[in-house]
Computed example of a mutant assay.
Amino acid sequence: MQLVRKPRYDTDFIFDLESAGGRGISEALGLAGFTNLDVVRNPSLGSTPYVARVQLRTTIGFTDKMVAAQRTPYSLATQTPVRRIELRVGRMSMPDAFDNNSVGTDSHLQFLNWTADNNGAWDYAADTRGYSYAVVAEYTDHDWQARYAIALMPTIANGIDLDWSLRRASGQNYEVDWNNGPVSHWLKDKKGAVRVMGFTNHADMGLYRNANRAALQARALGDASATPDITAHPRQITVKYGFGANVEQELGHNLRAYGRFGWNEGQHESYAYTEVDQTFAGGMDLAGNGWNRANDKVGLTLISNAIKRDHQQYLALGGIGFILGDGRLNYSREDILESYYNMHNWRGLFTAFDVQLIAHPGYNNDRGPVAVFTVRTHVDF
């Protein structure tokens, strides 16, 4: 709903009610790069409708010069100032504002894998459904943008309840975008973008090294079955941080490429998104103009995920995370190849066929390879 329609000071109210259920393959366990971004990781929550987003978004323009803006689910303005600040406050998902990429972000029409659509090493603030309460500030000036957000963290890893004390726990995010840089000009003004982001989380997180040490000491004292428990520590607020980058670039009229890199320090507990400490992803999509199907699209991506040494030892000693842990680990990187064909049926109706080939699921060289085939239907109203 547009509360203020003046382009220089437009204000929107956004309300989004969702229903999402289902258990996913293996109860959504055993894969760091899980095969469906829309799966709820806690199947006991059921599919009862819930509030996903409720927020105010306002623009403060610094010039009367306007540019055309495309309406999105999070912004209703059709014109916006060239130089402006945008403020959002309320319930949202951090990927609504950060780490966006026009080739690899939309799980409804593009790739499905968690680590294809988002940066797997970005442990962004969220409850188990993927949402939090946050304040986001973004400054835009011609071909670049900078944004900052502070959001509530869950009280426990992958928990549904949020910690409402920002003095005690918070997730802070930072990102800078550059649009149409030197690569775009070298490719005869083809559109492109480069984004660099960072995050700092304060929460009640355990240390893998401490959990491993406690288990090894118990074994040395005669408890041969002792396993590390990352949650077995007195309440403490620790800090986890990381950074990432993503790029996208038009290569031709119908062909686009993208890439992502992510890293976090990996010593503290994976807490909110997934168990990835380092990730590389790259791929492309091709529109169907060449075979007279302009609204069809085919995509291909390759992803490689990793975890740090303390995290590896934790799983090898029998530790359990909120996604991974089968009692043993013969470590190897988790490599994923995904491809889809998204077919436009009629008006807003699309059907997609997707295949994912996963080597070393959950970083275990003794597991896999696994092939996952998916048929997806999406309707835009």
Rank of each mutant, 00 (worst) to 15 (best):
A149R: 11
I160E: 14
K65Y: 08
F199H: 10
Q79R: 10
T72C: 05
R91F: 04
K191P: 09
N118F: 07
R88S: 08
W186S: 06
I160C: 01
L87F: 02
T115E: 12
H185M: 05
R168P: 11
I85W: 03
I85Y: 00
H185F: 05
E138M: 04
H108I: 00
Y174D: 04
L112S: 01
M92E: 13
G120W: 13
M66I: 14
M197T: 09
V196M: 13
Y133M: 11
D99T: 05
H142G: 02
T140G: 07
D189A: 03
P81Q: 03
M153F: 04
N180H: 07
S102Q: 12
A151L: 10
Y148I: 11
A121D: 07
K190E: 03
V176P: 02
A116D: 08
S165M: 01
P95D: 08
D141S: 09
A68D: 08
F111Q: 06
H108M: 01
D64A: 10
D163S: 07
E138G: 10
Y74L: 14
R167S: 07
A69K: 14
R129I: 04
L76R: 09
S132A: 14
A169F: 09
D177G: 06
E138D: 04
R195I: 00
Q110H: 08
R147A: 01
A116N: 13
R168I: 10
A126Q: 01
Q172W: 06
Q70W: 04
R129A: 10
N179L: 13
V194I: 12
W186Q: 02
S102G: 05
N118T: 13
I150W: 14
D106L: 08
A116G: 14
R168W: 08
R167G: 15
S93C: 11
N173K: 00
Q79A: 04
M197W: 07
H185Q: 05
R195Q: 15
Q70F: 05
L162Q: 03
A169W: 11
D163L: 12
A193E: 05
L76H: 06
P73F: 04
L87P: 03
D117G: 15
D117V: 15
N113L: 04
L112T: 06
Y133A: 10
S102H: 02
A68K: 15
Y133V: 06
I156S: 11
W178E: 12
V135I: 12
W122E: 10
G198P: 06
A125S: 13
M197F: 12
T155C: 01
Q172V: 01
A157G: 09
R91S: 11
D161Y: 06
N180I: 07
R84G: 12
A149I: 00
W114C: 07
S170W: 11
K188F: 04
L166Y: 13
T105N: 15
W178L: 15
S170C: 01
